[in-house]
Nucleic acid binder design. Structure first.
Lengths: 225, 225
DNA sequence: TCATGAAAAACGAACGACCGTTCTTTTATG
DNA sequence: CATAAAAGAACGGTCGTTCGTTTTTCATGA
C-alpha cells in the first residue's frame, strides 16, 4: 500500500479546523440573512476562503445547512443527557431549559427557525430533526417515567399528552424569541416551570428542600395582576 | 369632471376577486415549496394568469407574502375577539385554541413557520407581526385581568410572565405541527389547557358547571403513566 | 339597447442581473 | 515531487421584473 506512495493530506485536526471555519461562517451568514438569501460568495467572504475551498469540503450549499444542523443537534443532545442525572426533578428541568434556550443567544433562535422552515421541505434536514426529536423524547420519557415510578411526581394527565406539550413549549420559546426581540425569556421560563410542575405535582419526596438550590424554580409564589 | 371622460376600471368586487385569486395561488405555492423556492411562474400557473396580471395588482413578490400575512392576521384576530366574550374562562380558552390551531390544516402551520422566518429579516413582515402580537396580547391581557378582578381566577404567578408563556406555547404547537406530521395536536392541547388552568387556579365561581359544556376542557382527570 | 372608444387589465416574450457550481491553474504539504 | 488544497474567473441556468402589444371592460351617447 505504499510502494511509490505520496499522499499528502491535511491532518485530521486540520481537516476539522477547515470544516469548522466554513461552517461557522455559513452559520453566521444564514443567521443574518437566511439560507436562501445568503450567497456562496457571502460565505466565502465571511470565511476568508474561495469557492473552491468550500467545495473541497462540502458538496453543496445544502450540505452546509446539513452540517450546521448536525452540529447543533449534537450540542443540544449533550445538554439533554445532563438533565437525566439531575437529582431534583424540577430543578433539573429548569437548568436544562436555561442551558438549551435561555442562555443561548437570540441568533440561535433565528437559526433554529430557519432550520425548522427548511426541514418542512428538505428531506435530509427533516430526517436529522426526526432523529433529534426521537432522542429528546426518549430521554424525557425515561426521566419522567422513572420519576413517576419512584413516586417523586404524580402527573395530572397522561405522560403521552404531557411530553409533546412540553416539547412544543420549549420550541415556542425559540419561536417567540426569534420573532420578538423584546420577549422576556426568563419570565416565560419561570411561567413554564410553574405550569409544568403544577401538572406534574411533584411530591415532597421529589423536591430538594435545601435552600439556595434549584436555580430557576425558587420564587414562584407571587400574586398575579 | 366628466367632459370627455372615460374611466373603465374593474369594480371593487372584481378587483378584490383578482387579488384574492392571486393571493390564494401564492399561499398555496409558498406553503408547498417555501417563499424562496417558488417562482413567479409557479404562482402564475397556479392562478392561471400571466406575470403581467400579477404585477398589475402587486408590486413585487414580497408584496405577496405581505398580503398573505395581513389576511391571516385578520382571520386570527377575529377568532381572538370571540374569546373575549366567552363566559367560562377555561372553556373559552380551549375553544380559541381549537379554532386558531387545532382546526387549522397542517399546511397553515407550515405557512406560519415560513412567515415567521421571513419576519426575522423582512421589516415589513416584522411590523405586521408586531401589530398582530400587540392585538393578541392586549386582548389576552384584558380577558385575564378582568377574570382576576372578578375573582374567577387566582393566578399563581404574575400575568406579566404568564401571558408571554401562553403565547409561546401556542406558537410552539404551530412549530411542532409543521415540523412533525405525527404530532398529536389534540393531546398537546389538552395538556396545555390543563397546565394553564393549573397555574391560573380558576375558582368555582369562574368555572361553568353545567354538564355537556366546555368542549375541550372536560376530561382532564386521569392518572399519568 | 347597442355601438363606441379610451383607458385599464392581461398577455407573454425577452432582459438583465445574479448565483451555485465547475474547471483550470496555482500554491501548499508531507 | 506527487498530490491535495485553494484560488478565482467563467459558465450555464434561473428568476424577478419589464415592456410593447393585445384584449377586455364599461361609461357614454346615439
Amino acid at each position: 500500500m505504499s510502494l511509490k506512495a505520496a499522499m499528502p493530506k491535511l491532518s485530521d485536526k486540520q481537516q476539522h479546523e477547515r470544516r469548522t471555519r466554513i461552517l461557522d461562517a455559513a452559520e453566521q451568514c444564514f443567521t443574518r440573512a437566511g439560507f436562501h438569501r445568503t450567497t456562496m460568495q457571502d460565505i466565502c467572504k465571511a470565511a476568508g476562503v474561495s469557492p473552491g475551498a468550500i467545495y473541497t469540503w462540502f458538496d453543496s450549499k445544502e450540505a452546509l445547512i446539513g452540517g450546521i444542523t448536525a452540529r447543533n443537534r449534537d450540542e443540544v443532545l449533550a445538554s439533554f443527557a445532563a438533565m437525566a442525572t439531575a437529582s431534583d426533578f424540577v430543578a433539573g428541568m429548569a437548568a436544562t431549559l436555561e442551558a438549551c434556550v435561555l442562555n443561548q443567544p437570540r441568533a440561535k433562535s433565528v437559526l433554529c427557525l430557519e432550520i425548522a422552515a427548511e426541514a418542512t421541505r428538505n428531506p435530509a434536514i427533516a430526517a436529522m430533526m426526526a432523529t433529534f426529536d426521537d432522542a429528546v423524547r426518549t430521554s424525557l420519557a425515561d426521566i419522567l417515567s422513572r420519576a413517576v415510578e419512584e413516586g417523586r411526581i404524580k402527573p395530572q394527565l397522561p405522560l403521552r399528552d404531557l411530553m409533546p406539550a412540553m416539547n412544543a413549549i420549549a420550541e415556542g420559546m425559540f419561536w417567540r424569541r426569534a420573532v420578538d426581540p423584546a420577549f422576556d425569556a426568563a419570565g416565560a421560563g419561570r411561567a413554564f416551570v410553574a405550569m409544568v410542575s403544577a401538572v406534574l405535582r411533584p411530591t415532597a419526596a421529589g423536591t430538594a428542600q435545601k435552600p439556595g438550590d434549584a436555580p430557576g424554580s425558587a420564587e414562584l409564589a407571587e400574586q398575579g395582576s
